[in-house]
Nucleic acid binder design. Sequence first.
DNA 1: GGTCTGACTAGGT
DNA 2: AACCTAGCCAGAC
Length: 115
Amino acid sequence: MGSVAHKTAVTLQTPYQRIYATVRRIPPGRVASYGQVARLAGLRGRARQVGYALHVLRGDDVPWHRVVNVAGRISLRGPSALTQRIRLAHEGVACDANGRVDIARFGWRPRSRAR
DNA sequence: GGTCTGACTAGGT
DNA sequence: AACCTAGCCAGAC
């Protein structure tokens, strides 16, 4: 059948592109975990790959600051962690005294698409 | 080729 | 609560 055309269409987007597309869907004022992004991108279980994809990002085309770990903590170390915290605060997402984002309050819960 | 690292996570002790 | 382990996989060396 049209297996070749189908395969081509699926392969058109690399895993990284799917990750970036998913992160771009996170609305301002919301956060998603690495594992959640992986799942939504069709890459279940590859949370580390999401971290690496964001790590190698250049520029600000992707709102990488809206991704935190599953505990609500900022996983970055160094000055970039402060950048992330500031950007989140600018969107109304504050960290508590322990440096955590309240996932119950700010976690992104997309209505449609894969959980 | 092998080995190690990391912006991860779930599950167990 | 902290700590450990397995699973994950692209890069770096």
